[in-house]
Structures are given as C-alpha cells and as structure tokens.
C-alpha cells in the first residue's frame, strides 16, 4: 500500500502548488426540499487529484450529506458517472488540473434522480437485461472450451470494454425524449454477443432490437461516443447492429 493513500488528506494538501477551485453541485435532498438547488463549495486541491477526490474532500470535511456513488476509484466499476461542466464523465477519471477551477456538477440527464448525484439505475439495468447480455449456445459443450480465432475475437473487442456506467445513455437526446427506448448501453452489450462467433442467439437479439424501441431511435447524434469513458465507438456499434438487422446477417462487414 502506498503511503499517499494513508496520509490524512489535510496533511497531504499542504504543498505550495495547490489549486483553489469552486465546485457548484446541483443538489437534491428530498427530505429537505422538493426542489433541486445549487450549492457551491470552495476548496484547495492538488492538481493531480481526481474530481472524485475533491468530492470526497467536500463530503469528509465540509458537508457529509453530499451524496454520490463511487466504488473502485479506477474507472472500472462505472458507478460515478455524472455530468461535469455539461458532459457526462467518470469523476474518478478526471484530473483536477484538466477540469478548470470553476466546476459545475449535475446528475446525469435521462435518469430519475434519487439524491444529489445518485440516479436510479434500475430502468437502465432492466433494459440491459432485455437484450440477453449473456452467451447463449445450446450445442453440446466441447471437452475443453469453445474455441475462437483471434479475428473472431477482434470482431466484437470494442464492445467488451463496457463498464455499464450509463454515461452514453444519459447523454442521448433520444433517451431524454423517450425513456422506453433501449438506449446505447444496451445496444453496445447486445453487440458484444451478436458478433461473438460462439453465440447462437444473434437472431433473437436482432429481433428485440429491431422493434420500435430498438436501434432505430438512434439518430446518429454521437453524444454517446464522446461521453464513453472507455472510448468505445458506441455509435459505430449501433450502426453495425442496424446494418445486421437490415441485411439480415452479421457477416456483411
């Protein structure tokens, strides 16, 4: 364990090159007020602190009621997606030196807000389950493993990287307008199995995504691609699924 993580935050923040930042948070505390309100926090951070460190600092030293999700702190669990200066970002993947000294943080659009920056992810995961995001293959299993060539694996490599943070879905105007539409994250995870040579249920998934709340509500806006903290080419994945539905085949590209 590195000593940095054990040093108390206050001691760590004594150096000369500290940044003074103002963080404006859109807060919602249903037990105090029915309406969301803005609150600004002033604090000193190290340039190489992440935004999530700054939020922790507020929570631990200024206002314990500030509520947000975070878990891994390393861009893997996908729990701290939020709207930072107008764009969906993971708070643990942003360095303070890169976000400026006046920062505005809001919960993601397109999700019901539970408290402060915590949004209700249940509808998101319900839609995720709808596309059957697991390997389906009823053929008798071989003795060892279902083999796949490097090329076959590469076909869907990009969409294996999803951490289900919801940044793409929350950035999508089609989602804001219609909460029933399946949304980019579900399509990314459907893509991951549709183009997997070991899977046998591509047809079923393409049927699910071919209905009126499936891929066709995508208007190629590209907000999702820009928002994805994993650099997944989300719009491209959606377009590939659209073409697979249209051509009736996953073998056309």
């Amino acid at each position: 364990m590195s000593t940095a993580t054990r040093t108390p935050a206050a001691a760590r923040r004594s150096g000369a090159d500290l940044l003074a930042v103002a963080i404006k948070v859109k807060r919602y505390q249903p037990d105090r007020s029915d309406k969301p309100y803005w609150q600004e926090f002033q604090l000193q951070v190290e340039p190489k602190d992440r935004l999530v460190d700054a939020l922790n600092q507020i929570k631990w030293e200024q206002d314990g009621t500030l509520t947000f999700r975070r878990s891994c702190l390393h861009g893997v669990c996908g729990s701290d997606a939020m709207r930072v200066n107008g764009r969906n970002r993971l708070a643990c993947k942003l360095l303070m030196k890169d976000v400026g000294t006046r920062i505005t943080i809001e919960p993601m659009l397109g999700f019901p807000v539970i408290r402060d920056l915590v949004v209700d992810m249940d509808p998101f995961f319900a839609k995720y389950e709808k596309v059957k995001p697991f390997l389906i293959n009823d053929e008798p299993a071989p003795a060892a493993e279902r083999l796949q060539s490097a090329e076959e694996r590469a076909r869907y490599d990009d969409t294996t990287k999803c951490i289900l943070c919801g940044a793409c879905t929350g950035s999508c105007p089609s989602v804001w307008a219609n909460r029933d539409w399946v949304g980019p994250a579900s399509i990314v995870n459907a893509h991951r199995f549709i183009f997997d040579s070991r899977d046998r249920a591509a047809g079923e998934r393409l049927r699910i995504l071919g209905d009126r709340n499936g891929v066709w509500r995508c208007r190629t806006i590209f907000n999702c691609t820009e928002a994805c903290p994993r650099g997944i080419h989300v719009t491209d994945a959606i377009e590939e699924v659209k073409r697979a539905i249209m051509y009736g085949s996953t073998e056309t590209e």
Binding site: N85, G86, R87, P173, T220, I221, F222, N223, T235
Partner: peptide, 11 residues
C-alpha cells in the same frame, strides 16, 4: 443543457 459536440448540433 448538455454540452454536445458537432454531432448533437447536426441533429
């Protein structure tokens, strides 16, 4: 207002 890029404006 979401700060989308050219793709959002094009739409």
């Amino acid at each position: 207002m979401y700060r989308g890029q050219s793709g959002m404006w094009s739409w």
